[in-house]
Computed example of a mutant assay.
Amino acid sequence: MSKAGAMRIDRLLCYLRFARTRSLAAKLVGRGHLRCNGIRITRSSQTVMPGDVLTIPVGDVVKLIEITALPKRRGPPQEAQGCYHDLRSGA
């Protein structure tokens, strides 16, 4: 982490279970379809922090999530879902 309270995007995607591994998360970022606060991310070293809004392509769906907390580990799905708020579903 380069800043206090921030995490690399590839690590975050893995911990939040949007990618199985950190290397797959880096490939997802490298494709250039990911956005943070409306700005395209192309580097897996880009840092994100709570309050950032991410646009993530997941299969045929585009997820729009707001980061509410940074996970400490890649835990169970309920733990991961507690770290973000899905803005499209209103959940």
Rank of each mutant, 00 (worst) to 15 (best):
M1I: 07
S2A: 12
S2M: 06
K3I: 03
A4R: 05
G5Q: 07
G5H: 13
G5R: 06
A6D: 15
M7C: 08
M7I: 02
R8L: 00
R8C: 01
R8K: 04
I9C: 00
I9W: 01
I9M: 01
I9E: 00
L13H: 00
L13W: 01
L13F: 00
C14F: 03
C14V: 01
C14R: 02
C14K: 01
Y15I: 03
L16Y: 02
L16C: 08
L16Q: 03
L16V: 13
R17A: 10
F18Y: 05
A19H: 00
A19L: 01
A19M: 04
R20H: 13
R20A: 09
T21Q: 01
L24T: 11
A26H: 02
A26F: 02
L28P: 01
L28K: 00
L28H: 01
L28I: 03
V29I: 06
R31L: 07
G32A: 07
H33D: 09
C36T: 15
N37R: 04
I39A: 14
I39Y: 04
R40H: 14
R40S: 08
I41Y: 07
T42W: 09
T42I: 14
R43N: 05
R43L: 05
R43F: 08
R43D: 12
S44F: 05
S44Q: 11
Q46Y: 07
Q46E: 05
T47M: 11
V48D: 02
V48I: 06
P50T: 12
P50Y: 05
G51Y: 13
G51T: 05
G51V: 15
D52R: 03
D52Q: 11
D52M: 05
V53R: 13
V53T: 10
V53D: 13
L54R: 00
L54M: 15
L54N: 02
T55S: 07
T55M: 05
T55E: 10
T55I: 09
I56V: 12
P57T: 02
P57K: 13
V58Y: 09
D60H: 12
D60Q: 14
D60W: 04
V61T: 14
V62D: 11
K63T: 15
L64V: 04
I65Y: 09
I65C: 10
E66S: 04
I67E: 03
I67C: 03
T68P: 07
P71W: 14
P71G: 11
K72S: 07
K72W: 03
R74W: 03
R74F: 08
P76N: 06
P76Y: 06
Q78F: 11
E79M: 15
E79H: 13
E79V: 07
E79K: 10
A80L: 03
A80I: 07
A80V: 09
G82K: 13
G82D: 06
C83E: 15
C83D: 14
H85G: 09
H85A: 12
H85T: 08
H85C: 13
D86N: 14
L87A: 12
L87K: 09
L87H: 06
R88N: 02
S89N: 12
G90T: 09
